[in-house]
Simulated assay, not measured.
Amino acid sequence: MSKSMTIRDVAKAAGVSPATVSRTFVHPEKVESVTRDRILALAKEMNYRPNAAARSLITGLTGNIGIVVPDLTNPFFPTIVRSVQRKAEQLGYSALLVDTGEDVQHEPELTENLARQVDGLVLCSPRMSDGKLIEISSRYPLVMINREIPEVPAVTIDNRSGIAQEVAHLKALGHHRIGYVAGPETSYSCLIRQQAASELLAEAGLEEVSIGRFEPTFDGGRSAAQQVLLSSVTAVMVYNDVMALGLINQLTQFGVNVPENLTVVGYDDIEFSSMSSPALSTVHVPRNDSGVLAMDYLDALLRHGANAPQVPARLPTQFIFRETSRRLGSPLVAQ
C-alpha cells in the first residue's frame, strides 16, 4: 500500500515550511501567487489532501456546503444539484443535500438545521416567505437559484422572456383562446410565469383562460386534463414540463390528439421533453449554468463576504419548437 502524503512531505518537496502549506489551503490569499501555485501543483501531483478536521479546527469552517431542493423527484432539480456538486468539488468543498418535499411549513427548519452543519447554502427555488429568507440569509451565507429578493444573493432566470417567446409562438400559429395551467402558489417561478402570461397574452390581443392550480407533478398535469377539455381552448401553456407531459398523457387517454386537436407547450426543457412522443415544445432554462454560477457566487461570498463580485442579473431562456405545437386547425370542443 502506498504511503499517504503528509503536509511535511509537501513542504519538503516545495522547499517551504509546513505552516506555508497549511496557509495555502486555509488562507490562499495570504500566500505569494508563485509559491501558492507551486504548492498546489505539488499537492495534486503527490495526491495530498489536507485534513478536513484539522482545517475546521483552525478556520471554524467545515469544507462543506448545503444544497436545498423542494422536490428531488422533479426532473428539473437533479441537473442543478449535479452542477452545484461538481463545481463545489472543483472548489474544494463537499456537498450535503436536503429535499424538503414541497413542505413549506418545515422548509425553514430543515434549511437552518443544514446551515449549522455547513459553511454556506445553495437554495434551489425555495418556497418559504421573503421575510424568512431574509432572516436566514442574515445569519448564514447563502445563494438562491430561481428566486429573487433584493436583499438576498441569487442567480435568477429570465422567466418573463420565456413566456414572451411562448406567446409570440402561439400567436404566430394563429391561436387566440389560450389556456394556462398553473402550479402551486408557493412557487416563485409559478407566480412570475403566470403573471407574465396574463400580461403578455393581453398585450398580444389574445384571450387567456385560467385552467386552475395543480400540483407541479406528472399526476398534477393529468388532473388538469378534464378542465382543459371543458375550456374550449386551442392551445395550453403549462407551468412546467412535468405537468405538460402528464396533461398530454391524460388527453391521449381521452382520445385527444396533440398537436392535431390541441397545442401544448411546457417550460424548463427537462431531458424527458425531447424524449417524449410527441416531443414537447418548451422553454429551455439553463439549469446547469445556474448551478455553476450559484456555487461560484457562494464560494466568493465565503472568501470575500460583502465584497464578493455580483453575478449576471438573469440567465436567458429560449423557446424550443418541437412536435406538440402546430398551426391552428379546428377548435377543441368538449363532447
Rank of each mutant, 00 (worst) to 15 (best):
T156W: 01
T156I: 09
I157K: 01
I157A: 04
D158Q: 11
R160N: 08
R160H: 10
R160K: 12
S161G: 08
S161Y: 06
G162P: 08
I163C: 03
A164M: 11
Q165E: 15
E166Y: 01
E166L: 15
E166R: 14
V167A: 13
V167S: 11
V167R: 00
A168R: 15
A168K: 15
H169E: 10
L170C: 07
L170I: 07
A172V: 04
G174E: 04
H176G: 07
H176S: 14
I178C: 06
I178N: 05
Y180S: 03
V181T: 11
V181P: 10
V181Y: 07
V181G: 07
A182L: 02
A182G: 08
A182Y: 03
A182P: 12
G183Q: 09
P184V: 02
P184H: 06
E185H: 08
T186V: 14
S187N: 08
Y188C: 08
Y188F: 15
S189K: 01
S189T: 14
L191M: 14
L191Y: 00
I192G: 03
I192L: 12
R193Q: 02
R193K: 14
R193P: 00
R193D: 00
Q194C: 06
A196F: 00
A196H: 01
A196K: 03
A197S: 09
A197N: 05
A197C: 11
S198C: 10
E199I: 03
E199K: 07
L201R: 04
L201G: 10
A202V: 05
A204W: 01
L206E: 05
L206Y: 00
E208R: 15
E208Q: 15
V209C: 08
V209I: 15
I211W: 04
G212W: 11
G212Y: 12
R213A: 12
R213S: 12
F214H: 07
E215I: 00
E215W: 00
E215Q: 10
P216W: 08
P216D: 01
T217Y: 00
T217P: 00
T217E: 00
F218R: 10
D219P: 03
D219N: 11
G220D: 03
G221R: 02
R222Y: 03
R222C: 02
A224G: 10
A225S: 14
Q226E: 15
Q226T: 12
Q227M: 07
Q227L: 10
Q227S: 14
L230W: 02
S232F: 03
S232L: 03
V233C: 15
V233H: 07
T234K: 11
T234H: 08
A235Y: 09
V238G: 00
V238S: 01
V238C: 02
Y239E: 13
N240E: 07
N240P: 12
D241V: 02
V242I: 12
M243V: 02
M243N: 00
A244H: 03
A244G: 06
L245Q: 01
L245V: 05
G246A: 08
G246K: 10
L247V: 02
L247Y: 01
I248E: 05
Q250E: 15
Q250V: 11
Q253M: 13
F254S: 14
V256H: 03
V256R: 01
N257I: 12
N257Y: 06
N257H: 13
N257E: 14
V258C: 04
P259R: 02
P259A: 08
N261S: 13
L262M: 06
T263N: 11
V264I: 13
V264D: 01
V264C: 03
V264K: 12
V265Y: 08
V265R: 04
G266I: 01
G266W: 00
D268S: 10
D268I: 06
D268R: 06
